[in-house]
Design a protein around this nucleic acid. Structure first.
Lengths: 230, 230
DNA sequence: TCATAGTGATTCGTATACGATTTCGTACTC
DNA sequence: GAGTACGAAATCGTATACGAATCACTATGA
């Protein structure tokens, strides 16, 4: 009883390290030493090791044999890959979810989007990003295919760990983003077909990516990142 | 020197167990006992444990806390999820690869497809499935986004471990499949736009899924699995 | 006869210990 | 003065050991 139901130490270690990465205690490049983490958390190295390997599988840390683990950096290339992948799986997840999204969900999403619109005034990239995630979560969480849903979560996790908060780099994108959200809601509300919704959701994300690329790399590098160009 | 460069034991254990699963030594439902595997492979349990967790992350085995691991079964639902996910990521990977596929690749793919066509006579599902993977590999391996490519590989891995070899269940599908391959090649050859290629690749796979569903479940269950259904 | 509590066996979870590998600093030689 | 070889420190990789959780079986009682 007392229901300790405490998760395994591997699990605890995983959650703890992940939290510190996402919250920024461990910045990219930070060296994760097994023994150090173990002593810090009060565990032995074995569960910590397992946690690190899990984080590696998710791409939050890089691990090198006989050398050690470091927190993954904001490699712009990685960011591009992650965003592109996310545009595809999130688009699919949103399209699959659409038929299962009820009026209540739409209302909640719309409320969140209004918060975002307000947020545009005294712009706070962190808060805006959080709201953005809330918004999209409402749209894709009903996805009936757990594998796809898992891929979406992984993508968001990576973005979070990259601490990019794209909107910090491209504040101008925020305004368009809010408008696109409303358009997306309208599509879902009116029961648009899956293909249309998928395309809209995908474009919404790759537009953010393109905005980032345009800002990071002045030359208009065609559509290196966009799959839906044309 | 001598360049043992031997992989870590975790890695060896991972490869060994995975091979046995794919090749069918360990059939679905088979119970993977850590101590047993360890003694069998000559390692200690620690590396074996890590290998199992990796396989779990890839979905080849199911792991339950304090209970143990078993080889994932041919749960039809899992098959559906995997195929649907693969249709999406493989479609995207193929579309992204298309511009990078040269004439030589096309020729190789076409040769493989001819083998498949021959194979239709004295039908051998195992060989046909292998050729099928070869064919598609040529089409998506050039994908410049490593994340997406990784997702595709994982999907194929799962299918392999499920040992479904769909064509064993739906031999009638094989003929159409070969024709669709040729059509796909033509699209790539003529430089069709990414969206068209993606759609074709996706449909090609979901058609296989639909054939399986139709066979497994006589009643025409609308489009439970297909995202591109109209 | 069926339900339930108790007991033993099996297997996982984690700690500790030690060997293997890499890295970095230092001294030596050309 | 620059480059190389050697060695010590740091860190990972794996083995072994023991505690904890789960499961299967049996005995007991209603």
């Amino acid at each position: 009883m007392t229901e300790t139901a405490v998760e395994s130490k591997s699990q605890q270690a995983y959650a703890a390290v992940k939290a510190r990465i996402v919250e920024g205690t461990y910045t990219p490049g930070y060296r994760l030493v097994l023994a150090g983490l173990a002593k810090d958390l009060g565990f032995s190295v074995v569960p910590v090791r397992e946690a690190i390997r899990r984080l590696e599988a998710e791409g939050l840390v890089k691990f090198e044999r006989n050398v050690g683990a470091t927190v993954s950096g904001i490699d712009p290339t990685e960011y591009l890959y992650t965003m592109q992948t996310l545009s595809i799986v999130e688009g699919a997840a949103t399209a699959l979810s659409a038929p299962l999204i009820g009026a209540a969900d739409i209302a909640r999403a719309r409320a969140v989007n209004e918060d975002m619109r307000e947020c545009l005034q005294h712009f706070d990239p962190i808060r805006f990003t959080r709201l953005n995630q809330d918004f999209h979560s409402i749209l894709f969480e009903h996805c009936p295919n757990p594998h796809i849903l898992d891929l979406v979560h992984r993508g968001w996790n990576r973005l979070a760990s990259l601490r990019s908060s794209t909107f910090r780099f491209v504040p101008g994108r925020a305004h368009d983003s809010v408008d696109e959200h409303e358009a997306l809601l309208k599509l879902i509300e009116t029961g648009a077909d899956a293909d249309t919704i998928e395309k809209a959701a995908r474009l919404h994300r790759s537009a953010t990516l393109d905005a980032y690329l345009a800002q990071a790399n002045p030359l208009p590098q065609s559509n290196a990142g966009s799959l839906n160009a044309r």
